[in-house]
Design a protein around this nucleic acid. Structure first.
Lengths: 159, 159
DNA sequence: ATACTTGCAAAAGCTTTGCACACAA
DNA sequence: TTGTGTGCAAAGCTTTTGCAAGTAT
């Protein structure tokens, strides 16, 4: 699905609940869609959105992110560096993507398969617990980061 | 392992790094050990510690928690309610416990098995990624909470 | 008109830090 | 005495909120 198509679809979701796709919301959404893999913080999102929409205030960005969280379009995540990051849940892999977090270079790479269906059935049976969502992160390191100096941007290492 | 034994063990870890087991640290540790399953926030820990050690300040509690995080005795977690919670990593199930988070009653129940070993081998093989830690949370609801009014304390519901 | 949105600034958390004092080796 | 640890209050951050003004239908 192209970004335009995704925007269009999200616009429908907004409309259903009586919300409008304003310029600020559109710009924020584009930043999220264009940086899907980056798990940006509110501050980072704000700085990027401001390039598209200079007069936006950070309060608006927070309000947009809260709105998108409500609609389950993004999800708040915390990778241990103390900052809230926003993770886009695009249709293709909603409810089924996991993370590998490298503690050498800080990269957060996504795994776009759902590895947990079996386990979720087990929770249902053994605990009477119905799963509606899950979160799975692996912390460790890529061999390519261990062996030679890592090419990825040196974000803060995790824990 | 009894609480006394665990305290003793942790004391050794502290000593190794030149830290002392002061009254404040002892009290904080006991609160954590006695409430292992509760995933307390800093504020909650502070209130409980103050019962044992009334003159303690919250800054000290934060400093103790930071110290324990450094030593990998506790781990900072975020369950989506916006509060940092501290999760004890006791020896028996270090690196191998998961969470069921009920969005009816807010209970966080632990699963003390490691269900991920197979998947971690796969990451090693497919991505060249060595896992040193992981995190697995399931969000959903217990049937007992759906059917009749839930007996657990009504913490804030998750997302 | 009416309801939704926004920017700004103030307020509200939660967490960290500076500093002088206390304590233990 | 020397370095570690602590309480208090102040400072720092991120995030939320109040309010008046703006916008679209």
């Amino acid at each position: 699905m192209t970004i335009e198509e995704q925007i269009k679809k999200i616009n429908s979701s907004l409309a259903t609940k009586g919300y409008k796709l304003t310029g600020q919301r559109d710009a924020t959404l584009r930043v999220l869609l264009e940086n899907e893999k980056d798990h940006l913080s509110a501050e980072e999102i704000f700085l990027l959105v401001r390039k598209k929409f200079p007069k936006i205030g950070i309060a608006t960005v927070y309000r947009v992110l809260e709105l998108l969280t409500e609609l389950h379009i993004v999800e708040k995540m915390n990778f241990g560096d103390g900052v809230v990051r926003y993770d886009l849940r695009s249709d293709e892999h909603e409810h089924m993507h996991h993370h590998m977090i490298c503690n050498q270079c800080g990269e957060v790479r996504e795994i776009k398969e759902d590895w947990l269906q079996m386990l979720e059935k087990r929770l249902e049976k053994e605990f009477g617990f119905t799963v509606t969502d899950h979160r799975l992160d692996f912390i460790g390191s890529f061999h390519s980061c261990d062996s030679h100096s890592c090419k990825h941007s040196g974000k803060a290492a995790v824990s």
